[in-house]
Write a protein that binds this DNA or RNA. Structure first.
Length: 207
DNA sequence: TGCCAGGCCCTCTTTAGGGCCTT
């Protein structure tokens, strides 16, 4: 029964970080996530975390997360342990998932934790479904698909909510445009790997 | 000292280079 629930619900994840690469010493400073079940947000997770060092002025400006805000935040290790418990074995979605996966893996590895779910990338799927979009940045796709948002960008929970909205919009377009009744997670993962030229034919076969 | 991401994807490609995305 748990497996059925996990297969149908996904966690949409977003990190704010000190930089682009955990391999270069960058750390997470905020995690935001929503759990989607049957097209609805049924749970949320949001937490700032103290990476143990000061963040750059660029990151303060980019995210609006200041060193002062992080000073009293719990350490990454404590937050990530909470998140691992919350995440369980759910599958994951993120915009440019390879980025968030690298940080999730790096932060969980530090505390000897892991996760059982798999990732799907909303960026790779959007590049295939919306091939004529001017670009595939999260903010641009949110505007193009008229996805509701509160005007906050580059904060973890706000970005995860918008990514969740994009995910649902893509599922709806697969139903509407291609007649796929219940596009599941595995179909989305497969779609993300298809050559763009093969997308239409692949989706026709899934009807 | 000086350097510094990584993966996808296109093309003036594949014995490579550069733009797009994420912070």
């Amino acid at each position: 029964m748990l497996q059925t629930v996990s297969a149908r619900s996904v966690v949409v994840l977003d990190f704010e970080t000190t930089g682009l690469s955990p391999n270069q010493g960058d750390r997470a400073i905020e995690i935001g996530a929503v759990r989607l079940l049957n097209g609805q947000v049924v749970d949320r997770f949001q937490q700032l975390m103290n990476p143990g060092r000061r963040v750059s002025g660029f990151i303060e400006n980019f995210t609006g997360i200041s060193n002062e805000m992080l000073r009293d935040a719990p350490p990454c290790e404590a937050v990530m342990a909470q998140f691992a418990d919350w995440l369980g074995d759910h599958n994951l979605v993120a915009h440019n998932a390879s980025f968030d996966q690298r940080f999730l893996d790096a932060e969980l590895s530090r505390i000897g934790r892991g996760y059982g779910g798999q990732f799907a990338c909303s960026l790779l799927i959007a590049r295939r479904l919306y091939q004529d979009a001017p670009n595939h940045k999260l903010g641009s796709l949110v505007a193009m698909k008229n996805i509701q948002h509160d005007g906050v960008f580059h904060r973890a929970l706000a970005d995860s909510e918008m990514t969740a909205g994009l995910w649902l919009a893509m599922l709806a377009d697969l139903q509407r445009t291609y007649g796929i009744d219940t596009p599941d997670f595995a179909l989305m993962q497969t779609l993300a790997k298809k050559p763009k030229s093969a997308v239409a034919a692949y989706l026709q076969k899934q009807r």
